[in-house]
Design a protein around this nucleic acid. Structure first.
Lengths: 217, 217
DNA sequence: GTCTATAGATTGATAGAC
DNA sequence: GTCTATCAATCTATAGAC
């Protein structure tokens, strides 16, 4: 059990600041200041500010994706063994549950989940790419399994419905820990992760399984 | 029919650049350059960069919100006159249809819709506030009508489901015109606004009307 | 209203001593 | 690996001539 080294302290500080203030609105000085580290350390250890963001993403996304992949493969495997189609809800849960629970996996993890939620809407294409590159294979796997779950949906409809799923999820990831920043006249929306997952699954499963208007072209 | 003046050219240029590159990643020089206007014009006409963003939002959000409000009031009024509850789908359509169609209302309008979609996930709280302040009354109206539509949902569940709706919508607004930037191995997702609205309504109506797990606390 | 010129602060990145 | 010092570029904002 050693104290966190310079590299890890930089990752922690950057993770928090990128999530709270945004990449372009966070200076290297703010990061190194929060990390109690010399200004030059970022470029020494990571090479550039953007490479630091990449490392922030890599550090936590890699294990998170491993769990999600395992879960998805398990759902597919069990369905195959039983000679049935994977259920929409268990497919979704395999993906969503570890994601939202990840917030509780330690300090900084909630900041990371917020960061992920926000990067989906990131205007700077080169920053978005850092994330897309690392998530695309998993996204394709999810798409593939959902296609098995919902063979009556045409591909384009499924594609867009999956986008709706990602949008709802990303928004939730941005805001799960941050009420009441927004609402005053609204019901106190504090909620356990358990209940949030339940609500998301109910909503998204129903949306994905909704009857489809005749394929329009 | 006059040529667009300095002020309007600045709004047009800023709208596009804020949507494409992000607020903090867009310099006043980039804006005035694109607008073919002197650097000092921004501060003369608007006072600051942030006030320029505010004006960009105000210009188009004001009429868009007026239409959405009118539609929502009409849905509520018709339901009351007929002595029934407003239907979830027509409530959603009153809000969503004008929003997505707004993209086609002129050059720059698609950039604006992208900008709106992105600002939901904006990390900089003071920028988010510019938008929240202008959307909150409409959001409360939507919440209120949906509560009439779905009286069997507890308030907290409805609140979160409405967040899921906003997330899916915002994500769609970000990406509606931008495929295929993302996908290569995926079905060409080009789609008419008509079909997109149809798909969103099918998905979100089913999600909102999904049976609710017993109220958990 | 539009321009030039520039103040004044901050940025990401690097060179070189230790 | 860590530090100081600094470069060169960029930024928002403003003063003042026209």
């Amino acid at each position: 059990m050693t104290l966190p080294g310079t590299k890890q302290r930089l990752l922690d500080a950057a993770e928090r600041l990128f999530a709270d203030e945004g990449f372009h609105n966070t200076s290297l000085r703010a990061i190194t200041g929060r990390a109690n580290v010399n200004l030059a350390a970022v470029n020494y250890h990571f090479g550039s500010k953007e490479a630091l963001l990449d490392a922030v993403i890599e550090r936590r996304l890699s294990p998170l994706n491993a769990v999600r992949r395992e879960n998805l493969e398990a759902v597919r495997g069990e369905a195959r063994d039983a000679g049935r189609r994977p259920k929409t809800e268990e497919t979704l849960r395999a993906f969503i549950d570890p994601t939202l629970r990840f917030r509780e996996s330690g300090p900084g993890a909630e900041a990371f989940i917020t960061l992920l939620g926000r990067i989906l809407a990131e205007p700077d294409a080169s920053l978005r790419e850092l994330f897309i590159r690392r998530i695309k294979p998993l996204f394709l796997l999810l798409f593939q399994i959902l296609r098995e779950s919902l063979p009556e949906l045409d591909e384009r409809t499924l594609f867009w419905r999956l986008q709706f799923v990602l949008g709802a999820m990303g928004h939730t990831m941005c805001w799960a820990g941050r009420f009441g920043e927004l609402p005053e006249e609204l019901p106190a929306p504090s909620v356990t992760t358990e209940a949030l997952v339940r609500m998301l699954l109910d909503f998204l499963t129903a949306g994905l399984e909704a009857p489809c208007a005749t394929t329009n072209e």
